[in-house]
Design a protein around this nucleic acid. Structure first.
Lengths: 159, 159
DNA sequence: TCGATAAACTTGAAGCATCAAGTGTTGTTG
DNA sequence: CAACAACACTTGATGCTTCAAGTTTATCGA
């Protein structure tokens, strides 16, 4: 708790309200397209995509949670759903009995391949069309900065 | 539907994954702080804040939905909740009988004033600390660009 | 002016996310 | 080596968001 609040400057406030707008609108916009065309959430898509990028299409829950920026709890619920649909399967890890591994099935791969073009087109048209290379670099830098700070703050409070 | 997908470049993909990280982590981080310290959601806070910025602490539902980047349906549910807590009140509009006006009550104002310092401090520490003025300008430009494109795309599909 | 269309919400149900609590497994330390 | 803490999840309940459908009021065209 601080005694004096460091308020935002006018420029910061403008930037903040727009960023809040992105948070409030972009997620739903992506969900809406994927739901309509492929009956899945953006987060579902991310899970399948992150699995597909692993050599053997397999990851541990914790690893996948990290790659998708999700809590283990959220991931567990979603993996249960995707497993019911046959897109992924859980299997025990050879390394340790307390880790669960998730594998992208052939069906899951098929669904991902079908969903990808429409999703990428949506991301392109909502985010990247009209952005310069400098803008893209700035976006990566700033977004990376924010994610880092969030992760650092979670470490603080855990100790 | 396009025949050839314009995939993302490597730089775009990096930027996109980080932006997705922001979407997935920043909202929950803000919710978590506000929930813990003030028993409210970030979206609740935004509603109260946007009402407080109006001269008479009053806005129509549609106007407030626009300011908070929300659907009318979402807003209606949340306003019902905030009304039950006594932070806002609904009243008819003198101009037209189909518009509902929402007013920030004194209690709501009090809650907002109490919540603001902690929230602003969180936003500052997660987003703005460590960003240069150029970064802030870039953030505003890019986030504004994305929000504009989402709004434009919604108009497309509505016609 | 009358009827159709659109605007401005509201509501209920269904699906998602989060939180708290619980289970089983693996290091770790006295 | 036995207790204890930490890790890697899983589960159930609660609250939030979205979607589809419904209501009431205003506008617009013939």
């Amino acid at each position: 708790m601080r005694l004096m609040t460091r308020w935002l400057t006018e420029d910061e406030l403008d930037a903040w309200l727009r960023l809040a707008g992105v948070m409030l609108k972009l997620g739903p916009a992506l969900d809406s397209q994927l739901q309509r065309d492929s009956d899945m959430t953006h987060f579902d898509y991310l899970c399948l995509a992150m699995l597909s990028e692993s050599g053997d299409r397999t990851r541990t829950m914790s690893d996948l949670a990290g790659k998708t920026n999700a809590s283990l709890s959220r991931l567990s619920h979603v993996i249960t759903k995707l497993e019911k649909r046959g897109y992924v399967s859980r299997c025990p890890s050879p390394a340790s009995r307390r880790v669960t591994m998730v594998r992208l099935t052939d069906d899951g791969w098929g669904v991902l391949v079908k969903a990808a073009p429409g999703h990428v087109e949506t991301v392109r048209s909502l985010v990247f069309d009209g952005l310069s290379a400098d803008d893209v670099a700035a976006l990566e830098k700033i977004a990376g900065h924010i994610v880092e700070r969030i992760e650092a703050s979670r470490l603080d409070s855990t100790c």
